[in-house]
Write a protein that binds this DNA or RNA. Sequence first.
DNA 1: GCTAAATCTCTTAGTGACTAAGATATATAT
DNA 2: ATATATATCTTAGTCACTAAGAGATTTAGC
Lengths: 170, 170
Amino acid sequence: MRAALLQDLEEAMRRSSAQGVLYGQTVANVAGIANSDLECMDILYLEGRVTAGRLAEVTGLTTGAITGVVDRLEKAGLVRRERDEKDRRKVFISVVPEKAMKIGELYVPMQQAMEKVFGAYSDEELRLLLRFANEGYKGVLAATEALKSLIDTPPEKRPDLKLKKLRRQP
Amino acid sequence: MRAALLQDLEEAMRRSSAQGVLYGQTVANVAGIANSDLECMDILYLEGRVTAGRLAEVTGLTTGAITGVVDRLEKAGLVRRERDEKDRRKVFISVVPEKAMKIGELYVPMQQAMEKVFGAYSDEELRLLLRFANEGYKGVLAATEALKSLIDTPPEKRPDLKLKKLRRQP
DNA sequence: GCTAAATCTCTTAGTGACTAAGATATATAT
DNA sequence: ATATATATCTTAGTCACTAAGAGATTTAGC
């Protein structure tokens, strides 16, 4: 009973997450920038002014790749490079708000759709969703670390991993 | 008040979704396959036996790219190609369960983390989350379509798009 | 039934974002 | 002062992707 609920939930979340990725791809397409470029714009919105190295860390790209990303974004006028005066090795990247706005507008359909969905929930329920989203984030973050640590554990030394059946047969 | 809640929620969901993408990248990395290859494996799990064209549709890749994806996956023994006997133009792709299992195991850290998160919620609450996930999926799907239709609408004819402020200043 | 148009996958040539390795510049430690 | 560490950039090479179209099969119109 509860097991079925959990499985449905997992599947539903996978689906919506995959569709979210697809939305992002479409945005990047329309904006005429690469996928990773858009992802970095997103991070810049969430975290504000960040260093190139931090972008590499968060995206999982190499610093070399980030140089390319920032080059392209800078050329498109979407971001600015600013050397840190205190530590002149560092380069801060920040968005150019006026230009970035045009990309932000491409998220309007998404915002409208979400507004509509959220509209059906009470404040109380939204707080539950928020709590879940935050805990989910922490969980995924921890899982990512766990997976990474699994990499350099030889298979025979790995803790016994029991995979749940992934999909009920339709 | 509610506006702040909605904004927090949006941001939390964006964060967790981004981290989810990163988890997927790590899985692909560990499994030694390309990102899109893993995405297709995922779709094959969710939808079962699907045609090459359907994969292109769902992933947003061209059919040419899908040929490459399936070539690599087939070479790795993860999927099989089967011509449809009724319509011999079609090619069905299906996973080879024994081989795919090894990739499935890489999702165990994620499953464990999610189990832990879900554990803190009652059945009632999980049903709320499920409802939200399903409605969210439909919303994102609709938004994707809306965005696509925006592409071939000349900017001056577009409905007035009011972008909400994306981030509260920290 | 026969031809034309449509549908589905694959092929080919070319492009561009990515990695790995190392160069450069600056900062910190002994 | 020298060595080590840190942060970004450069370079060469690789690989997945797109666009365009070919090949194979099915569907539609006459």
